[in-house]
Design a protein around this nucleic acid. Structure first.
Length: 443
RNA sequence: GGCGCGGUGGCGGAGAGGCUACGCAGCGGAUUGCAAAUCCGUGUACACCAGUUCGAAUCUGGUCCGCGCCUCCA
């Protein structure tokens, strides 16, 4: 069985054939760091982390390179910095750090490189120069603009032609644009705005340019896989293609894969809608693995209506798996799991494959498969008993359990039940078994 | 208006012409001093209307509804 991916570019499921199996490149569009990441931001990270893990498994970890950018210069960061009276680098560094922490809590492997826009300026200047030389870009009133009509097959990723894009579109056309569809590569900064000096005057880059440059710098002119959210198909990815292919004259990315949007009661989750749950807040109520599993419980391309009940459900599933694998060493990763994932990252099918192994005889395979998916990575004791900050301590629980065992031995069940009820009210659940009494923290 | 995606049981969610996944919840039972956990059993589904077919959730046409993108977006 080989990996098959739904390619946005061809609108088909296609067998994945790397350019060079010893050197596979994958790029995932990363965050603009102006606020805490919400759970919708985490969906591509977790989904494509699964792809990264699968590619490492199939081709060898040392032969796969994952690059994800950090956009650390942007008008939203500038706005935030102005509001808080801080330097933009201070805001960007803080949220960049919190982003890495949050994604690590969701068990996403760190990318091999996380380039920042501010570190990629020389490459941006060079690409703009090339584009101007080749007649694909021009300077106007301090801006550098990409001239869309200069590219014959612009729009093939999103299925729009530039005419169609403009028909009924809600854009105000800046007077310095030669064509309404032209987009900004570089824009001027006023004196009170952050800016960088360069060949086109003091200013800052447009949104799309950094990705084109980072990909060329870290992965090459043609890459295997470019991934990101469905909402980036147009204009962001379309414009990346335009910049890169016009500058380099070779195809940009062979496989484009896009994740569907997370929703909140039927509406897309987004900061501008204000209907978000931050990863940071959710982590106060749920373990990272439960959030990860929730994101993996639906296929990455499907919309997923997010709510906390879903996470609680997946938490219970993990509870069951942790019980089953508590004393078990992981075996080989089961082939049924790999087969399911190779079918366009079909994680729900993969989870069903794990459920088929969720019995005592095959617990070792369950553990291996779950580990492969970034699950069951803690110890069972840690999972069930890990202490919250202000909660009852483990040795206190053990002391009360011992008292209760004495009471039960002497037939004083009402005292035994009092102890248990008391613990329950503190969020501790007791489990009597043939071998003794265990405990865990309630959800 | 243009481009695209989708509607599956109480809920989540795969599948894609005949074998009706899987999980959560529910119900019945076992076990337990009582619980918890576990185990066994169990019901309910393919938005609507036509058509193709021996046979349609699955293919075709139409209808309805929902969602995304159309220069802030994961």
């Amino acid at each position: 069985m080989t990996l098959v991916l739904q390619n946005t570019l061809t609108r088909k499921k296609q067998e994945f054939e790397p350019i060079d199996p010893k050197n596979i490149g994958i790029y995932v569009c990363g965050p603009t760091v102006y606020d805490y990441a919400h759970i919708g931001n985490a969906r591509p990270v977790v989904a494509f982390d699964m792809l990264y893990r699968l590619l490492r498994h199939s081709y060898g970890a040392e032969h796969v390179k994952l690059v994800a950018n950090i956009t650390d210069i942007d008008d939203k960061i500038m706005k935030r910095a102005a509001e808080e009276n801080k330097d933009i680098s201070e805001v960007a560094d803080y949220f960049s750090q919190s982003y890495s922490e949050d994604m690590a809590a969701l068990l996403a492997l760190p990318p091999d490189a996380t380039p920042k826009a501010t570190e990629t300026l020389p490459e941006m200047f060079a690409m703009m120069e090339t584009l101007i030389e080749k007649g694909h870009a021009y300077e106007a009133e301090g801006h550098v603009l990409f001239h869309v009509p200069s590219m014959k097959n612009y729009g093939r990723l999103s299925g729009n032609s530039s005419d169609e894009i403009l028909a009924g579109a809600r854009i105000e056309v800046a007077p310095y644009k030669k064509d309404p569809a032209d987009f900004v590569l570089w824009k001027p900064s006023s004196d009170d705005q952050p800016g960088w000096d360069g060949p086109y005057g003091r200013g800052r880059p447009g949104w799309h340019l950094e990705c084109s440059c980072m990909i060329a710098k870290h992965l090459g002119k043609t890459i295997d896989i470019h991934a990101g959210g469905l909402d980036l198909v147009f204009p962001h990815h379309e414009n990346e293609i335009a910049q890169s292919e016009c500058a380099h004259g070779v195809p940009f990315a062979r496989y484009w894969i896009h994740n569907g949007m997370l929703q909140m009661t039927g509406e897309k989750m987004s900061k501008s809608e204000g209907n978000i749950e931050t990863v940071r807040d959710l982590l106060k109520s749920f373990p990272g693995e439960a959030l990860r599993l929730t994101l993996l419980s639906a296929h990455y391309r499907q919309p997923l209506d997010f709510n906390r009940a879903l996470v609680a459900e997946q938490k219970r599933r993990l509870d069951r798996w942790y019980r089953l694998t508590a004393e078990v060493e992981a075996a080989e990763v089961p082939e049924t799991l790999i087969t399911a994932l190779e079918d366009d990252l079909n994680t729900p099918k993969a989870l069903a494959a794990l459920e088929a192994l969720a019995k005592p005889e095959t617990a070792a395979e369950l553990k291996a498969g779950a580990n492969f998916m970034g699950l069951l990575t803690a110890s069972a004791a840690g999972w069930f008993q890990s202490a919250g900050s202000d909660e009852i301590f483990a040795d206190e629980v053990e002391k009360l359990i011992a008292e209760r065992i004495e009471a039960r031995k002497s037939g004083d069940f009402s005292k035994a039940d009092d102890i248990r009820d008391n613990l329950t009210s503190q969020g501790i659940i007791l489990e009597d078994s043939a071998t003794g009494t265990g405990w865990r923290r309630a959800d």
